[in-house]
Amino acid sequence: MLDAILLEQHGVPAVAIVTDVFRATGETMAMSWGLAGYPFLDTPHPIANLRDKDLDARADRLVEPVVALLTR
C-alpha cells in the first residue's frame, strides 16, 4: 500500500492489492498520508497456502480492475 502511494507521488502509476481482511489497514495507511478514499483492490484472504492454479485464478480475476485503476 505504502509502495503504491509513494510510486504515485513520483508519477509512476501503481495499484495496491491487499487481502480483504487488510482493507482497514490499507485505509489507515492512505489516511496517514492524507489520501482518504485512495482506491485499491482486494482479494479473499488468505493467499499464502493456495495452490499455483488457484493463485493464478485469483490473479486472472484482478487483471481487469488493475488495468482500470492504472489507466484511470
Binding site: F22, A24, T25, T28, M29, S32
Partner: peptide, 9 residues
Amino acid sequence: QTRPGFFDR
C-alpha cells in the same frame, strides 16, 4: 497510530 485492527494487526 498503532491501534488494534488498523495498524496493529
